[in-house]
Nucleic acid binder design. Sequence first.
DNA 1: TTAAAATGAAACCATTTGGTTTTATATTTG
DNA 2: CAAATATAAAACCAAATGGTTTCATTTTAA
Lengths: 106, 106
Amino acid sequence: MNAAKHDVFQAIADPTRRDVLKLLAHKELPISEISSHFPISRTAVAKHLHILSEAKLVSGRKVGREKIYQLHPEPLKELKDWLAYYEQFWSNKLSILKHVVENEDN
Amino acid sequence: MNAAKHDVFQAIADPTRRDVLKLLAHKELPISEISSHFPISRTAVAKHLHILSEAKLVSGRKVGREKIYQLHPEPLKELKDWLAYYEQFWSNKLSILKHVVENEDN
DNA sequence: TTAAAATGAAACCATTTGGTTTTATATTTG
DNA sequence: CAAATATAAAACCAAATGGTTTCATTTTAA
């Protein structure tokens, strides 16, 4: 749970982490506030926040004794870009035709 | 590695599985062909294909002694929908302003 | 009809993951 | 200052993950 081994794809793979992101979309929040929304321990939530930080999806700043976490949606662009490639296959019938034609017997 | 415990988010979390999807985007392929593109064993690739099947991102049909896998990009729509929510936060300055205003001191 | 090819299935393994509990450290606040 | 609050850090754990090897089954093809 240390080095920057977590990318965006892994970060959002966990449903709890996706819920954390939704929470922070509304408003930045301290860890204790965040964890009060989940049935798991504060420590567990803190670990999820670390993983989200590694993926640069959130950042935390210390304010007094609290650590306030904030959403940074930018890294999700990587996901959007990745997705864009596949959208051509469902977006409309022309694309599907194009796909079929391009792949016939090559 | 049995029940439908794998969703789209988990399925695409692994880089090898994302590479498999890219491969199948071009053309449907049998397992052995697919696995020849990776440094891991055929068995390992087959497991990845199972996980992708659970997420309905691919399907395999038996043809003779081969099992031909094919891409099904539709489930990626779930990802697209999920992403759409966050796009408002980066797509343009108006959206950002909207976000700030909506969240001021509530 | 036997050997090769393609897959399936099972057993096994090390590491990662998602969680816990416990202990320590800052920071307020009465 | 002492108690309460908020977090950090570490040790631990069960289950999942991503891989392997080995053996069995099905399907061609010579």
